Computed example of a mutant assay.
Amino acid sequence: MIEKATSPANITAMLQTLRAHQAEASGLSGATEGLGQKPVGKTGFGELISNAIGNVNELQNADDKLQDAYDRGENVPLTDVVLSMQKSSLAFEATLQIRNKVLKAYEEILNMPV
């Protein structure tokens, strides 16, 4: 049994699987080329920001829908409504904090002596 687990073919297959999972988790495109998968395209900063704001907007829209459904008396658990409100609030606050940090960094760069 141990001989099967430590065979070179099994070790190679295990390493390929681990690399595939690592590449998927980190979003790297170069690590998946040897595994027969399509490489992941690189995204720019603007696109990342746009996606993040879109996700926050989706959370807030879902929260509004749940609140409206609860207000209309539909069969929506109060815990789901409160959790949705907290998720959207937390996402919005995180977005504001990131915006503030980016603006502060931009102002510091502008005030740097040349």
Rank of each mutant, 00 (worst) to 15 (best):
V76R: 04
G34E: 13
I2R: 03
K87Y: 10
G30A: 09
V102H: 03
I53A: 13
K101I: 08
N10G: 01
K42Q: 12
L83N: 11
R19V: 11
Q67P: 01
E24Q: 11
A13V: 07
A91M: 10
R72G: 01
P113I: 03
L15W: 14
A69V: 02
I53D: 11
E108M: 11
Q97I: 05
E33C: 01
L96V: 10
G46K: 04
L48I: 07
K42N: 08
D63N: 10
Q97T: 09
A94C: 03
E3H: 06
D64G: 08
N10S: 07
L28K: 08
M14G: 05
E33N: 03
A23P: 01
K101R: 10
K101Q: 15
Q67N: 10
D64L: 11
K65E: 06
L78G: 00
L83Y: 04
M112E: 15
I11T: 12
G27M: 05
Q37D: 05
R99P: 00
G44Q: 11
D68V: 02
T32E: 08
A52H: 02
G54S: 15
L28R: 14
A94V: 04
T17Y: 09
V40Y: 01
N57Q: 12
M1C: 01
S88F: 02
Q37P: 00
L90E: 09
S88A: 15
G46M: 04
I11R: 09
R72Y: 04
Q60P: 00
G54E: 12
V82A: 09
N75R: 10
N100T: 10
M14A: 15
S29A: 08
Y70M: 04
L15H: 13
K101W: 02
E58R: 10
T12Y: 10
Q22T: 04
N10D: 05
T43F: 14
K87G: 00
V76A: 05
L90A: 13
R19I: 12
D71G: 06
A5W: 05
Q22F: 09
L83H: 01
E3C: 04
A94R: 10
K38P: 03
Q22Y: 07
G73N: 13
A94W: 06
R72V: 07
V40T: 12
K4E: 12
T6D: 03
T17L: 15
E107S: 14
N111L: 09
L59D: 09
V114Y: 06
N55A: 09
T79W: 04
N111I: 00
A31K: 08
E58K: 11
A13I: 08
N61P: 00
S26A: 01
Y70H: 13
V81I: 10
E108L: 14
F92K: 13
H21F: 14
A69N: 05
A25D: 10
N61A: 06
